[in-house]
Amino acid sequence: MTATSPDVQGLRDQLWVAVTSRDEYGAADIVFTALDDGLDAETALLALIAPVQAKVGAEWAANRLSVAQEHAASAITERVIAALAHHPAHRTPPSLGHITVACVEQEWHSLPARLLAEVLTLRGWRVDFLGAQVPTQHLIAHLHNSGADTVALSSSLPTRLPAAHAAITACQAIGVPVLVGGAAFGHDGRYARLLGADAWAPDARAAARRLADGIPAPAPARGHQQIDDLPHLIDQEYTLVSRTQPQLVKTVLTQLEGRFPAMASYDKHQRERTAEDLAHILDFLAVALYTDDDDLFTTFITWTAGILTARHVPARSLHPALDILATELKDFPRTTRLLDQARFALDRAPAATGPHRGATT
């Protein structure tokens, strides 16, 4: 069967109903019946399970699934994948290289990495899957102890790019090549190249092909630091914005009450959510400073406008927040440029959807 066949589409529809109605056993039965009927395990992972999970995220963004519903559906997906991985009929003895698959530090969205780990296992790789949120020092310790030939790092949120950069640099310093993937690195791999990764892949199958072709080990670079890749960081704007984030959130919240009258009627929960949204805005502003990429921040701001609109929160509330930040950070040239571009994008474009997740959850 192929990803576009009517049978697979019908299975997706059935699996969607099962995961969104919290029917874990029904979801597992759909997948295992399909396998018994001839669907290969890799197709089940990438053409059946993965698209259903992507739809879960899209429906959350459109406010048609609550956070709890999204989490429940995702948990079922994870358990179905685990059950598939332990099915005796789909075990492949390792015959290729040894690879470690992990999410970068602070990255909790582990499903893309899990799918890659399972695909590589099916293809005959020996895989150490370390899961979500792996601190760099523990990753390096594991590589020393395991002797893995390559490490595959996954990240879904662009705000994790500084942590990814640290991990890439550390792995290369001990001579282990790094393949990266996930939405955080851009649809075209631009941030993978910016941060000096040895290879990038847009999906699990492409990653498997890239690994099969071989990724040369980097020559250990003594004394190499992250700023060597990103000389614009010498201006310290990223560091200063990151360190002052809590105070900036408080300042914007206080001033918003005078500029956005609707806040006067907000209850405690709404104020807490507003503070969370402001923190996310500053997270993305900081990572845009880290990468020196205007598009990263403007895309997030227009996406946030769409998320707020879907939840019946006026997107115009973003304007005064950005204005306040522009005033507070007026002495930072790159920050001023990013905020100006974001305000311009917000004025000229309707609320749009995008690849980011995190705000308002």
Rank of each mutant, 00 (worst) to 15 (best):
D7E: 14
P220D: 04
I81A: 05
A18E: 04
L253S: 15
R343T: 03
T304L: 15
F332R: 14
L45C: 09
G131M: 09
G306H: 03
P355W: 05
A72E: 13
F185K: 02
N145F: 12
T309E: 00
G181V: 10
R193Y: 12
P135N: 07
V56L: 07
G175E: 00
L248T: 08
D295P: 06
T239P: 02
L130R: 13
A62V: 09
A359F: 15
E59Q: 14
D294I: 07
A352N: 10
V31A: 05
Q133I: 08
T159P: 06
E257Y: 07
S317M: 03
I99E: 01
G10A: 07
T150P: 00
G214W: 06
H356V: 05
A212S: 14
P350F: 05
A221P: 01
A82C: 04
F284D: 02
D293E: 00
D198G: 10
R64H: 00
E272R: 14
D7R: 15
V252R: 02
L46K: 15
L346Q: 09
A68R: 14
L122S: 06
A83P: 08
A197V: 06
D36E: 03
E42T: 12
Q226E: 14
Q341K: 15
P112H: 01
T274Q: 10
L139T: 08
L339R: 04
H312A: 15
R343H: 05
G147M: 02
V134T: 11
Q53W: 08
T336F: 03
P261E: 00
R22W: 15
A3Q: 01
A3K: 10
R12H: 03
Q226H: 14
L157Q: 15
V52G: 07
P94T: 02
V151L: 06
A192D: 04
D331G: 02
A141G: 08
D294L: 00
P94Y: 10
V19M: 10
